[in-house]
């Protein structure tokens, strides 16, 4: 089995004006595609070919860096595309909202804390909302690491992700990462995030 670059559920221009079409297209067809290809090449003809990406990531400390970097890059972008849509924005409902209120006090406080994690990640990386058996926490990871990895400081299942590699926002926002982070809230589809919160 080899991993496949997923198709997006929306057009490249669907997240305009928050994320521009050119950024989306390069991000998906070049960056994400390269991680996918590099991952497949790295595990070709080995026992890992039949493992799920989650299985690989959970034991990533036993793999070479090329698998960590590209396996993370493959998985992280899958999550990122999955939780965005042109119907995004607003606030979550139901169990997810209750969990956020319980663990952060208010949606605004959660948002502030997530924004801070995304803005202060130095260099390339990601910020996450992580489910730890029903408890929600925020974390950030360098490069293509993620909370599924056994090397992560804060472990759990990521249910929301923002890519803060410069390639995620540089064509439209250049050095203004906080503007990109603010815009991101308009494309988070909370119904899709809720599906990951199980």
């Amino acid at each position: 089995m080899s991993f496949e670059l997923p198709k997006l559920a929306y057009a490249y221009n669907a997240l305009e004006p928050y994320i521009d079409a050119m950024t989306m297209e390069i991000h998906h067809t070049k960056h994400h595609a390269a991680y996918t290809n590099n991952l497949n090449n790295a595990i070709k003809d080995s026992e890992n070919e039949n493992k799920s990406i989650e299985e690989i990531l959970k034991n990533i400390s036993k793999y070479p860096m090329v698998v960590r970097n590209n396996g993370g890059g493959y998985y992280n972008h899958n999550v990122f595309w999955e939780i965005m849509s042109p119907n995004g924005g607003g606030e979550p409902k139901g169990d997810l909202l209750q969990a956020i209120l319980k663990d952060f006090g208010s949606f605004e406080k959660f948002k502030e804390s997530f924004n801070n994690a995304a803005a202060t990640r130095f260099g390339s990386g990601w910020a996450w909302l992580v489910n730890q058996n029903g408890k929600l926490v925020i974390s950030s990871t360098p490069n293509q690491d993620n909370p599924l990895m056994d090397v992560a400081e804060i472990k759990g299942t990521p249910i929301l992700a923002i890519d803060v590699w410069e390639h995620a926002y540089y064509l439209k926002y250049q050095n203004r990462r906080p503007e990109y982070i603010n815009a991101f809230w308009n494309v988070i589809d909370w119904n899709l995030v809720a599906k990951r919160f199980v």
């Binding site: 390069i26 070049k30 960056h31 390269a34 260099g123 390339s124 590699w165 410069e166 390639h167 540089y170 064509l171 250049q174 050095n175």
Partner: peptide, 12 residues
Amino acid sequence: VWEHAYYIDYQN
């Protein structure tokens, strides 16, 4: 090789 050094001109 931070992406900001080249992304406007060369992207990926």
